[in-house]
Every structure is written in structure tokens, then in C-alpha cells.
Design a protein around this nucleic acid. Structure first.
Length: 612
RNA sequence: GACCCCGUAGCUCAGCCGGAUAGAGCACCAGAUUCCUAAUCUGGGGGCCGCGCGUUCGAAUCGCGCCGGGGUCACCA
């Protein structure tokens, strides 16, 4: 049996060539809407419903947006289930089961649908002919690294801002989760048909970079031979020694006794550049590479913040007022009422109006940040920020300000979401592991990646939904076994690759010539793989890359389970010595499952290893 | 006091735009390896989905109110 590719599909790279490219590296391909199984049958159901509207059974203008097509929870119900009749019955003034009969009547006429049954309150359960699954199996092969890629995003530009750690030191584990989630989300959105800009906002304008410059100046003096003590409040980390030495080599003692005004800007610029180099290296160990690094200092110098303020003032969203004392705890000792330009964030549910400038005339972080988001919105169709949960309190004000600024022309505000990632508690042997930047005993990201590996760190960070807190236990995470889902998924892939290698040694290669030899257990595996495209779309829509990690775990479990059938029943192994045709079909199946695992891991930025 | 997140099996957690008998791992019990990788698999017990009210044909899922845990509440970033 041989199946032709579905019409309209580029053959694409086949998994048989076994490229190790991650899907994200092929995003220049033209956006075609691949007709994968779920999208094909969803389209079929929609056409049936459209017919019912044309016939007058359903009222004109009926919206199908709540109609779903999904695998039934219980496999005994069938292959696919739709809620169409239940969702549409009420607005149409119909009995759900009566409507369901109208739908099933039309669906049953389809050759690939072997049964369409009405169940429970009005579910429609469909069973598909084996050929339908085999066609999907062939589609996986033909699409290869592009299987699961979606045109859902329609090429819309999405700006994802993540990490944005202050350029005052190396990255530590506190930054890790947001970095991984942001990067995986970027990969996911891109795979789902968006044009993603991965952006890092460099906070090189606040007081913290002046502190950095002073800290570096001390290291510079140290390099010149002076003995130094680092006072409270400056950065003590020895990662600044190197930059101090470089400055000493370049400038000699020129700035040793000079007033701060002579060297502050120079040292600050050099120090920030050095810190950003270090951070880029740290990110690279996680496989993260941003497209764009935007400087807060440059933004301020460009006058864009002033322009934003002027616009907000003209619309009465910024006014000069007196800041209230902080609520809920004793005000700071030096607190006194001061008149400042305030943004009316109380209009948007905030506790109090928020200053955009400090009393010394400098912009607050918030003041610059709103202009920064406005700037991002100029070149994107949608914005996503990944923030740590400790910044949750500032979400309302920035969303309010961005909504106001981006609808300045009277249009709809630019879609803008802030995704909060909750804290990660570091553990060691079941005990919390305390971290203090001031004491200098913080755990650097680079150390952890060095210890447990990029793939483990990335996958582990995605094994929990981002809005739940998580523990990261070093001892458990290095353990290469059951407890660790990364290895479980990678092992499934490695098993397949190993089998294909072993088969190739014996002259056995995958082939779609006899796919009809595949039975129920094999088709069940295909059914799981066939869910990949809709998992991608659902995860992208929800901006939740962790769903792909969970899906991959399920797919790997199915593979392992199928594999072990061969323990008791040798005729169920991939390689059946005396039956070359069956073996070729099984290998074709295995290669396809491996391809889906590889594509999914690729979206998450985790390597699909060849052997373990 | 306010805002944000969480509360599902003994433990750690999934559960999609509301859908059918609520799932997985760990732990516990019983099994599978002359055989393509046992880093795997098969079977078993175990549930007031924190509590209440509401919306709905239908609620773990949506809304409101409580309770419990975590986080935040600078002119910091």
C-alpha cells in the first residue's frame, strides 16, 4: 500500500534524512496551512455545519467558535469527538440530539468515517478508517521537521521580552525560569506561525549601574596596586576584578584620584558592556539568543520618554500631584510628601497613582518602561513580557499605560500580555538552599547548567505551569532516571534512533509500502502523534509552552509502552526478522514518532539525543 | 489593609474554549529482562478536585464570598 502526499503539500525534508536541525531554524519557509488530521476533520465538521445553515436547520450567522474537535477522554468512545450539537442546539432552539442526528447523517456519508454515534447529552463520536491514520503517518514523514508547524499566527509579529536581568552581574538561578519560559514560548509562537522578536531590555540607566561603575572603580584601584575594602552597598563580586584590570591597563592611573564626574560615565559604559557580554555567555549556555538588546539609556536620550509624558499629560493621564505614603506598612523614616508627575493608575485598579519621574528629575523605571513598551509596539502586532512574580504589583500600571499609549490614534490598543513566572525554590537534598546576592553566595546559572546540563535545566523548568511555584532540587535533577522526565522523553527518542541504526545494519529501512500491515496498537501510537499539531496551536494560543513538555511525556510513555509489548510478544517488535515488509512499516512508524518527539523538543530548545 | 499566584490521591503535579466514569509520576504491593536500550513496561489499592453560594442541559474548569499557603505593596529595578 502506498499513500500519496496530501494535495498542496511540499514534500519537505523527510525524517529519513535525519537532519538534526531544530524546527525553529527553518522558519523562513513559506507559510502554508498543513492539512493535518485534526485540522482536516475540523474543517469537515465546519463544512457540514455550514451546509446546515444553508439548509435553514441552523440560523444564519451561527458562530462555530465554541465547537471543538478533540480525542475523547475514553478511547472506547471513538477516535474523535465533537460537542457541535450541544453548543449549537440552544441558540438554534433545537434539541441537541436532534441536531446531532442531522450532523451525523452528513458525516457518516464520508468514506473515511466508519461510524458517527451520538452519545450522552449530545456528543458526536467518530471512528476513522485506518487509512485516515495512515495518511497522517505519511504526512508526518513528508512534513518532517515541519510537522506540527502551524500557520495560525499568520505571520503576525510578536515581541517577546524576557530575562532583562540588570547588567550588574552574572545571571543567577532566580533568572532561570523566566529565561527558559520566554525562550520556549518564543520557539512555540514561531512554530505556530508568528514572526517572533526576542528582546532583552537593558536597564543601563538607573542608580544600580552607577553603583556598578563605583564598584568597578574600586577594582580599578585594586588593579593599580591599592588595597581596597568594598563598602556596604557596592557590588562585592569578584567577577568585576577582570574589568578593573582592563581599565587599569588601558588608562593607567589617570582616574585614580580623579573626581567621580570624570570617570563615572566611562566606567559605567564599560562595565555595562562587560556585564552584558557575561550575561550573553550565560544565556548561550542555555541555548538562548535574543534578537534585540534595547538600552534604557538610549531610549531616554532619544526623547521618546518625554514624548510619551507629553501625550499622557495632554490626555489627563499624567498630572503633578503629591505621592501618598506607602500603604500597609510604616512609611520609611525619610518619607515626606513631594510633588511629582503621576500616572493615573488608580483609574485602572491600582492602589495609588504612580510617579514617572523622581524628585531629582530622573525618570523612574516605570516612566521609562511605558515609553519602552510604546516603542516596542511600533514594530509588533502583539507584545508579551515574561516577568518574575515579584513584579506582579506593577502589571496594572504598565498595562494601563500601554493600552492608553497604543490606542492614541483612536484605534484598538495593541495586544499586550504580561506572563508572570512564579518563584523557584532552590533545594539540595530536600532542604531549601539559601541564596544571597549581597553575601556573594548566590548560585549562578552557568554553574547549574555546568552541573546538570542545558537540556535538564530547560525541560525541568517546563514541567510545571509557570504560575505555580516550583522547587528545583539539585540532587533530584541530576538523577538520570525515572523521576526525571527529560531523560524519559529523550530515552524514547534514543530508543527509536537506536532501532533504526540496528535495522540499517541489517539492511532494513523504513518504508511506506506496506503501512496497511500496521495494527491497532500501532495506530494508537499514530493517534497520539496526530495530536501534536493541535497541541502546538492550543499551547501557542494560551502562551503556555509547558503543555508541549507534558504532551511529549505522554507520547514517550506511549512509545515505551508499545516497545514493551515486544517483550512478551516478539511479533510486536519493530524488527521482525522473517517479515521485511512488516519491519519496514514498523520502522516507518517509529521514525515518525521519533520525528514528532524531535519536533516537540526542538520547540522547547531541548536536544533529541541519538543515544543514551 | 490592598493586589497577584496557588489549593486536585500519602507526596510532587497535569487537566485545553465548561463536557462523558477526574489523570500521571513518586511512594506502597504483586509481576515482566535467553528478545530491537529494563534510564523501560504490566497489574493493584488510594479522591469532600479547600469550603459555600451562583451561572449552566452540564462546573475541578466560569462568577461572587470565605478559609489556608506563597509573593508583592519605594522617587528601587
Amino acid at each position: 500500500m502506498s499513500l500519496p502526499p496530501r494535495p498542496g503539500l511540499d514534500p519537505g525534508p523527510s525524517f529519513l534524512s535525519c537532519t538534526r536541525d531544530l524546527p525553529r531554524q527553518t522558519h523562513e519557509k513559506p507559510m502554508t496551512e498543513p492539512k493535518t488530521l485534526y485540522s482536516a476533520y475540523a474543517a469537515l465538521i465546519e463544512s457540514v455545519l455550514t451546509d446546515l445553515v444553508a439548509e435553514g436547520t441552523l440560523p444564519a450567522g451561527t458562530s462555530f467558535t465554541n465547537v471543538t474537535l478533540e480525542p475523547p477522554r475514553d478511547a472506547s468512545h471513538g477516535d474523535l469527538a465533537t460537542n457541535a450539537a450541544m453548543v449549537l442546539a440552544k441558540p438554534a432552539g433545537l434539541n441537541p440530539r436532534a441536531l446531532a442526528e442531522g450532523i451525523t447523517g452528513k458525516l457518516a456519508a464520508h468514506a473515511s468515517i466508519t461510524s458517527a454515534e451520538i452519545a450522552g447529552p449530545g456528543f458526536i463520536n467518530l471512528r476513522l478508517a485506518p487509512a485516515a491514520w495512515l495518511e497522517e503517518l505519511a504526512a508526518i514523514a513528508h512534513l518532517g521537521a515541519d510537522y506540527g508547524r502551524s500557520a495560525m499566527g499568520e505571520g503576525r509579529v510578536v515581541n517577546v521580552e524576557y530575562v532583562s536581568a540588570n547588567p550588574t552581574g552574572p545571571m543567577h538561578m532566580g533568572h532561570c525560569r523566566g529565561a527558559v519560559v520566554g525562550d520556549a514560548l518564543s520557539g512555540l509562537l514561531e512554530f505556530a506561525g508568528h514572526a517572533v522578536t526576542k528582546e532583552y531590555y537593558v536597564n543601563d540607566a538607573g542608580a544600580q549601574v552607577d553603583v556598578l561603575a563605583r564598584s568597578v572603580h574600586l577594582r580599578y584601584l585594586e588593579a593599580l596596586g591599592q588595597s581596597i575594602t568594598i563598602p556596604e552597598g557596592l557590588y562585592p563580586g569578584d567577577y568585576l576584578v577582570d574589568i578593573g584590570q582592563k581599565l587599569a591597563a588601558e588608562f593607567g592611573d589617570k582616574y585614580a584620584d580623579a573626581p567621580e564626574g570624570d570617570w563615572l560615565i566611562l566606567f559605567r559604559t564599560r562595565a555595562v558592556a562587560a556585564m552584558m557580554d557575561m550575561i550573553r555567555d550565560d544565556l548561550a549556555t542555555l541555548g538562548i539568543k535574543h534578537d534585540l538588546f534595547s538600552s534604557e539609556a538610549e531610549l531616554q536620550a532619544s526623547g521618546k520618554v518625554d514624548a510619551a509624558e507629553a501625550w499622557l499629560r495632554a490626555h489627563d493621564l499624567v498630572y503633578d500631584g503629591v505621592l501618598e505614603a506607602p500603604k500597609g506598612k510604616a512609611p520609611p523614616e525619610d518619607w515626606e510628601p513631594v510633588q511629582l508627575p503621576l500616572f493615573r493608575s488608580t483609574k485602572f485598579g491600582d492602589d495609588q497613582d504612580r510617579p514617572i519621574k523622581k524628585s531629582n528629575g530622573a525618570w523612574t523605571y516605570f516612566g521609562a518602561d511605558l515609553a519602552y513598551h510604546f516603542q516596542k509596539a511600533q514594530s509588533a502586532d502583539a507584545l508579551v513580557d515574561i516577568w518574575g512574580a515579584d513584579h506582579a504589583g506593577t502589571v496594572k500600571r504598565i498595562k494601563a499605560a500601554v493600552a492608553a499609549l497604543t490606542s492614541a490614534d483612536g484605534g484598538a490598543p495593541k495586544p499586550f500580555e504580561v506572563k508572570l513566572v512564579q518563584m523557584v525554590q532552590l533545594m539540595k537534598g530536600g532542604q531549601p538552599f539559601k541564596m544571597s546576592k549581597r553575601a556573594g553566595n548566590f548560585v549562578t546559572l552557568a554553574d547549574v547548567v555546568d552541573m546538570v546540563g542545558k537540556d535538564v535545566v530547560r525541560f525541568t523548568m517546563l514541567t510545571r505551569k509557570p504560575d505555580a511555584q516550583m522547587d528545583f532540587d539539585f540532587d533530584k535533577v541530576v538523577e538520570a532516571s525515572k523521576d526525571n522526565p527529560v531523560f524519559y522523553v529523550q530515552y524514547a527518542h534514543a530508543r527509536i534512533r537506536s532501532t533504526l541504526r540496528k535495522a540499517a545494519d541489517r539492511g532494513l529501512t523504513p518504508s511506506d509500502a506496506a503501512l496497511d500491515r500496521l495494527g491497532t496498537e500501532e495506530l494508537a501510537l499514530v493517534a497520539r502523534a496526530a495530536q501534536f499539531p493541535r497541541e502546538i496551536e492550543a499551547a501557542a494560543r494560551a502562551r503556555e509552552p509547558h503543555r508541549i513538555a507534558f504532551y511529549l511525556y505522554d507520547l514517550a510513555a506511549d512509545l515505551h509502552s508499545y516497545w514493551n509489548l515486544g517483550n512478551d510478544r516478539p511479533e510486536k517488535r519493530f524488527i521482525v526478522e522473517q517479515d521485511a515488509a512488516l519491519t519496514a512499516a514498523r520502522l516507518f512508524l517509529g521514525a515518525a514518532i521519533g520525528q514528532v518527539i524531535r519536533n516537540g523538543l526542538g520547540v522547547l530548545g531541548v536536544e533529541a539525543v541519538e543515544r543514551m
